[in-house]
């Protein structure tokens, strides 16, 4: 999907809980906070963390210059199961 969107000329960034998977899929730009699958954009109702992750991910649009780059984000959330 990310590749299809890039191919029509729209730059993208993906927030991934599983960086190896998006690397394998050939992502152009990815953000990788320390989160479980299902809470890629941060813990539920944690507005501060979600805003920070969304902002930091969007900023990667301006800063990543190399295709395939995955940047770890310093946010961490563990789901309680």
């Amino acid at each position: 999907m990310q590749r299809a969107i890039e191919s029509v000329g729209i730059p993208t960034v993906i927030i991934a809980a599983l960086p190896p998977v998006v690397r394998q899929a050939g992502t152009p730009r990815a953000a990788a906070p320390m989160v479980p699958m299902g809470a890629n954009a941060g813990a539920p109702h944690d507005v501060e963390m979600q805003t920070a992750i969304v902002k930091a991910s969007l900023e990667l649009l301006e800063t990543i210059e190399t295709p395939g780059k995955i940047v770890s984000l310093p946010f961490e959330y563990h789901a309680v199961i």
Partner: peptide, 22 residues
């Protein structure tokens, strides 16, 4: 599916797309 979504985004004049997956 990919090309359809891309086409919609293109037609609405989107400058960037934030995805969540993986």
């Amino acid at each position: 599916t990919g090309p359809q979504v891309a086409e919609m985004l293109k037609s609405e004049g989107v400058d960037a797309c934030l995805l969540t997956a993986g």
